[in-house]
């Protein structure tokens, strides 16, 4: 991917750019550092002035108090929600993206246009009617109320259509001539070919669902059905100056999702780029 051979000479301009970039990196990573170190500080260290840059006497007290709240239950809810949203989105989007890219049927263009238009609209605007709908369906305050709208959002279909278009039609044709049915063609020919796209969509949906605070806020409210994001917000609202506890909660919310991101970031960055550049 490297372009032309660049000269390796160091010029003052290049050094200045490197320094600025380094300082920016520090600035972007610092909030995370402050969350993690803050979560190990005792009450004195948290409120100290000048601030304690690094907790020399780390304490687990904040985490103990965090787990006195049902923080592990909140974390479990969040994982369940994100995994279910991810699995359902991948399945439905892979199927729909494939036929939108590779089959002609009446209404195809219309369906795709409506999906594109919907994606251009602000999805938070529909949260009021969505809440009414979930209450009507009896799903309000259950994890389904946050899973189903995530699955309905057409970005995944759009992304999988992009990836499916790269499949050669001859392969599908060959499978059909060999007598493979529609489902077998999809499972054994299509799915293996769109795996990179599916990987991107999976990680993208997982992270988005995990972090969709607004949707969770509207849909979930009883103490035992909260997600970790809502739990932290609740703790912050109730004990706004207990920063050690709040940082422990923030760490518990952030570390798992950052770990997932780092593990699968190759898929993730590919997918974002693919969805836009080819779109």
């Amino acid at each position: 991917m490297e372009t032309s051979v660049k000269s390796k000479k160091l010029t003052p301009g290049k050094v200045a750019v490197d320094i600025v970039l380094f300082l920016l990196a520090v600035f972007f990573i610092f909030p995370l550092y402050w969350i993690i170190t803050g979560s190990f500080k005792d009450r004195v260290a948290v409120n100290a002035n000048p601030p304690v840059w690094f907790p020399t006497a780390p304490t687990l007290d904040n985490y103990q108090r965090l787990f006195d709240n049902p923080a592990l239950l909140w974390l479990g809810n969040t994982v369940l929600m994100a995994v279910a949203a991810m699995a359902l989105t991948c399945l439905t989007a892979a199927m729909a993206g494939y036929v939108l890219a590779k089959k002609r049927f009446p209404g195809r263009a219309l369906i795709f246009s409506i999906m594109i238009c919907a994606m251009a609209l602000p999805k938070q605007v529909i949260l009021i009617p969505l809440l009414k709908e979930m209450s009507f369906l009896g799903l309000h305050d259950t994890l389904w109320a946050v899973i189903l709208p995530t699955v309905g959002w057409p970005f995944g279909i759009f992304l999988m259509k992009q990836f499916s278009e790269t499949i050669p039609g001859e392969m599908i044709e060959a499978a059909r001539i060999d007598g493979a049915g529609e489902i077998r063609t999809f499972v054994s020919i299509i799915l293996p070919m769109v795996t990179p796209g599916l990987g991107a969509l999976a990680i993208f949906t997982f992270i988005n669902s995990w972090n969709d605070y607004f949707l969770q806020l509207i849909m979930l409210n009883s103490r035992n059905s909260l997600t970790i994001s809502l739990g932290i917000a609740k703790i912050q609202a109730e004990m706004s100056n207990d920063y050690g506890l709040i940082m422990a909660g923030a760490a518990l919310a952030a570390i798992p999702i950052i770990a997932v991101f780092l593990a699968f970031q190759k898929y993730f960055t590919q997918g974002i780029a693919m969805g836009a550049v080819k779109g």
């Binding site: 439905t92 729909a96 609209l121 009617p129 279909i157 999809f186």
Partner: peptide
């Protein structure tokens, strides 16, 4: 083939219509 295409679209359309299109229309109407 057309029938197969619709069946493949069905799950995605179900969620899209129920949880995106319907609330959008409701938002406008209300």
């Amino acid at each position: 083939q057309t029938l197969a295409a619709y069946l493949f679209m069905l799950p995605a359309l179900f969620f899209f219509v129920l949880f995106v299109v319907v609330p959008m229309v409701m938002c406008l109407v209300t």
